[in-house]
Nucleic acid binder design. Structure first.
Length: 931
RNA sequence: GGGCGGGUGGUGGAAUGGCAGACACACAUGCCUUAGGAGCAUGGGCCGAAAGGCGUGAGGGUUCGAAUCCCUCCCCGCCCACCA
């Protein structure tokens, strides 16, 4: 009896051996094709959890496979070590962030090693290392030099009691209070550093050079949010120029008001004295809300009139200026024209605040409606309409009969208008809405085509029916009629109406023609707006890379000279329970001398967002101790760019955009020669708790990988994570399911090492057939490996193993084909389960190491099936099976099928209409009863 | 509200126009065993004694043939969310 599979012993032994023999040392070898395989670097939270394993183990398997395919693979690892949790630990437990971080790293290194991955530990990089953040600061200076780093006022969440800014995750609850003291948080304008990522917005929309998942490309495209339109200059009555951005210049004639963002710089100047108090109160209120809240769809459209008017440059209309929090200072120009007839938000705003609504784009669907109020016309109208063939619905109302008329098309509308006009009673009216927008009175017809018409119509309606007195605008009056509700507003493109000489311009040309005209007249110009904002990198934190800037009272903002880098993060700091950055109070750090004039000056005390550090780590990995630049260009020339990147999709709009931006800047600096950092990207899913929910301490469903490794060994944990389901989908953990993989590895152990109980089982297959099975398996497994389909790959290997377990008891056990089968099994399993395969490989007397062997090749001819089982259907139902040689000519297949015994009852008395032959799969005989 | 995924046995999943349920878990029965939370063998979508029928969220369509393609709807997950 051979010894049993003991993963703990084997794994420790081989990990030591690999380390000692330098199996995974990285060497730049120009004679071999390179492959840079990168996995997102972990944050050293202190414990390696199963999520890390889920991200890393399959990556390691793929990297090992590529190595077996002959690539010189670079598979580095490191730590994203700056960040808030270290500071929180300092405040709560009195541990210095540096100690906390580096102790965590030491622990995680040990845990990571237990995975048995082929990481290039000799190139490990840690972002909080002095020799790392020195270059992060260097990049800041290069950005600054190129005008890509700038400082401006920006709103931050601020706790007035703690006297500090808060990160977004430190603001709690609906009422937005401070996490620590419960005081309501306010928005405060602070000077902050930004990276000008918007300068690259256009280029970031181009994904033509990378093979990334569509999901990520879509998310980034939406995040960047490119919109074409025009900036149009309005003037206030006092002559102040106010620029608005619009994507719909074709609706300019329908602008009936203007809205500025509450923090718009012109508000101060424009606000009339008697409105100041109200405006200030509204601005304060708006400042208290985060952008997230302001953007909430459910929210009422609040706002206040500032007592000023602007002139619409295209038609001279005088329109009121409001401020409202649905307008963002950070998008477009921070000011909009309100076109309530064709923008849903403006429509709701106008209705709520009693602002007039003038339609200026015709409905493309040609629909119009008319509601004839009781007593508006002579009673014969009904009969006349009937005779004219115009359908209507009669509604009984307390005041009498009302008619609801739906009209489709120009002709119906004209016809209806003429008929109704002849039936109107004096003082009364009937309107047509949706299209036409005619108000038919006995003495004439008014069209809702201007503010003036609006007022006249409203006055007449109020005079004719006293109950209309309560309405502030014509549209408000119409909106009260349920029959009209869904036809009063639309945002489609369509022919322009009520727009002076542009009336009649078709929707397809309208935007272009109006924009061209605006440019000619000097009233506006074509403009592109992006939703992407510049990247705010300032953090009022201690544990981060200090921003290398000095403020001198004489010279102003002065960058730290490159030769003075790094700006050292001082370690002798006190952590205040308020959470304020200790750098602010560290006199030795803050006080410095100006590099230009030598006079007393102050350092910037903010540090950089940790996403800055992780935007270029793939370059630092190449040469983590290089000190002539961020990375060794020699080494870079060999390895870059990254060939394959893997990581969670949650970074789609943060890290994955930032690192693309960084790379484009590096390219413009001449540091790299390519446009994109990572050529291919794979997003793995999330490993969930046994209950299908996210693993978290509060749910109590966390599975500790260390315990699993102790019980089953790393190979089993690795394989099971890959077996659970498609890697890109993630899925729930199963503490029972892992047993299956453990059994599988035990079976492989038995298969290779143990003497079978019997050896004389009659062979079910010959040597040739066994070879065919081997090559067929290599073929499908290779395809699965290429496609990251680890779950089906393992299923194939299990099937293969199960088949071999039977063969093992037959005389074939001593054949050459058997040896080939076992060897192939171990080689295919090696990337997934590196330890057990190394052990079995050694015990078979093969040379060290299995991980330096070539991936098994398959013979295409052998991999092809010799015989196939084909289903034979009659009218789509399987009625028989037949085994035939593979790739038999269709005609032959048809003949063999038609004479099958089992089929005859189904064919008797039937006429064969056609026979469909799907090669090597099935035959479908289509029949119908014979006449 | 918008965008992208997804819905298949008791469970995780396989099959992306061609025999639905590979592989595994759990379960059942049997063998072995002093014992079994080890190992081995056998079984299984559902209904039915069988023949056969039904079956991939619901309904419709295209096709010789649909889990797969199209239309309508329901449910779940993720991302974005007043971006003018």
């Amino acid at each position: 009896m051979a010894e049993r599979y003991n993963p703990t012993e084997i794994e420790a032994r081989w990990q030591r051996r690999w380390e000692e023999s330098g199996l995974y040392r990285t060497v730049e070898d120009p004679s071999r094709p390179k492959f840079y395989f990168l996995t997102m670097l972990p944050y050293p939270s202190g414990d390696l959890h199963l999520g890390h394993w889920y991200a890393m183990a399959p990556s390691d398997a793929k990297a090992r496979y590529l190595r077996m395919r002959g690539y010189n693979v670079f598979f580095p690892i490191g730590f994203d070590a700056f960040g808030l949790p270290a500071e929180n630990a300092a405040i709560r437990h009195g541990i210095h962030p540096k100690i906390w971080t580096y102790e965590n790293i030491a622990r995680m290194r040990r845990q990571l090693r237990s995975m048995g991955a082929m990481w290039a530990w000799d190139r490990e990089a840690i972002t909080s290392d002095l020799e790392y953040y020195r270059w992060t600061q260097w990049f800041f200076l290069q950005f600054y030099k190129r005008g890509l780093a700038y400082r401006k006022y920006a709103p931050v969440d601020f706790c007035p009691k703690c006297n500090t800014t808060l990160a977004r995750e430190q603001v709690w609850g609906e009422d937005r209070h401070c996490e620590r003291c419960g005081t309501p948080v306010i928005r405060k304008e602070l000077e902050q550093w930004f990276f000008k990522i918007t300068a690259y917005a256009e280029e970031l929309l181009d994904f033509s050079q990378i093979d990334w998942p569509e999901r990520v490309r879509t998310m980034q495209t939406n995040w960047i949010g490119r919109s074409e339109g025009a900036n149009v200059v309005f003037r206030s009555e006092t002559g102040e120029a106010i620029e608005v951005f619009t994507t719909r210049p074709d609706t300019l004639w329908g602008a009936t008001f203007m809205v500025l963002a509450p923090e718009h710089p012109l508000v101060e100047k424009l606000t009339a004295a008697e409105h100041r108090e109200e405006v200030a109160a509204y601005q304060y209120q708006a400042a208290r809300q985060s952008e997230i809240e302001r953007l909430s769809t459910e929210k009422e459209k609040t706002g206040v009139f500032i007592g000023a008017y602007a002139i619409n440059p295209v038609n001279g209309e005088r329109i009121p200026i409001w401020i409202a929090d649905y307008v963002m200072m950070t998008y477009g120009t921070g000011a909009i024209m309100g076109v309530p007839a064709h923008d849903e938000r403006d429509f709701l705003f106008a209705l709520k605040h009693g602002l007039p609504i003038i339609p200026v784009i015709d409905r493309p669907d040609g629909r119009a409606r008319s509601y004839v109020r009781p007593g508006a016309t002579r009673p014969e109208l009904e009969e006349t309409l009937e005779r004219a063939g115009i359908p209507f619905v009669v509604e009984e109302e307390p005041a009498g009969k009302a008619l609801c008329v739906a009209l489709q098309g120009e002709e119906a509308l004209d016809n209806y208008v003429n008929i109704v006009q002849a039936h109107i009673l004096p003082g009364q009216w009937v309107e047509v809405v949706g299209r036409g927008w005619h108000f038919l009175f006995a003495e004439g017809r008014w069209t809702l085509d201007s503010l003036k018409a609006e007022q006249e119509i409203l006055a007449r309606c109020r005079a004719g029916r006293p109950e209309m007195q309560k309405y502030r605008t014509v549209m408000e009056m119409l909106y009260d009629i349920p029959f009209y509700r869904d036809i009063l507003f639309h945002a489609e493109y369509g022919p322009m109406i009520h727009s002076g000489r542009f009336s009649g311009t078709p929707g397809e040309e309208a935007v272009r023609r109006v924009t061209a005209w605006l440019e000619e007249e000097g009233l506006g110009r074509f403009a592109i707006a992006y939703r992407l904002r510049d990247w705010l990198i300032s953090r009022q934190r201690y544990w981060g890379a200090p921003i290398p800037i000095i403020y001198c009272p004489r010279c102003g903002t002065v960058p730290v000279p490159e030769e003075d880098l790094p700006v050292l993060l001082p370690e002798d700091v006190d952590f205040l329970p308020t959470g304020e950055s200790p750098l602010k109070f560290h006199e030795g750090f803050r006080r410095t001398t100006c590099p230009q004039c030598g006079g007393p000056a102050e350092r910037e005390t903010d540090t950089m967002d940790t996403f800055v550090c992780s935007s270029w780590y793939q370059y630092r990995y190449l040469s983590p101790r290089y000190d002539q630049g961020p990375f060794d260009p020699e080494v870079a020339r060999y390895w870059l760019p990254v060939d394959q990147y893997t990581g969670g999709v949650e970074h789609a709009t943060m890290h994955l955009i930032y690192t693309r931006f960084f790379t484009k800047v590096l390219r413009d600096m001449g540091l790299v020669w390519f446009d994109e950092p990572m050529l291919r990207l794979f997003n793995q899913g999330t490993i969930l708790g046994e209950d299908g929910e996210k693993m978290s301490k509060s749910r109590g469903n966390v599975v500790a990988p260390d315990d699993l490794v102790e019980k089953y060994g790393a190979d089993t944990v690795r394989c099971f994570l890959m077996f659970i389901g498609p890697w890109e989908e993630g899925g729930p953990w199963s503490s029972q399911g892992i047993e299956g993989i453990y059994r599988f590895l035990n079976r492989v152990w038995t298969l290779v090492l143990e003497e079978p109980e019997r050896k004389d089982r009659p062979a079910e297959m010959g040597e040739e057939a066994l070879r065919r099975l081997v090559h067929r398996t290599i073929k499908v497994v290779t395809a699965d490996m290429e496609a990251f389909h680890f779950n089906t790959l393992l299923a194939r290997l299990m099937e293969f193993t199960n088949a071999l377990m039977k063969v093992r008891e037959t005389p074939l056990r001593t054949s050459a084909a058997w040896d080939e089968a076992v060897e192939s099994l171990l080689l295919m399993l090696a990337p997934l389960a590196p330890h057990i395969t190394e052990e079995l490989w050694a015990r078979l007397g093969r040379p060290y190491s299995i991980h330096e062997q070539s991936w098994p090749a398959y013979d295409e001819a052998l991999a092809a099936l010799e015989e196939v089982d084909v289903a034979v259907q009659v009218n789509g139902r399987v009625r028989a099976q037949m085994r035939i040689p593979a790739d038999l000519p269709e005609e032959e297949v048809r003949l063999r099928a038609l004479v099958l015994e089992r089929l005859q009852p189904y064919l008797a008395g039937q006429e064969i209409v056609r026979v469909i032959v799907v090669p090597n799969r099935l035959v479908n005989i289509v029949v119908r009863p014979a006449r």
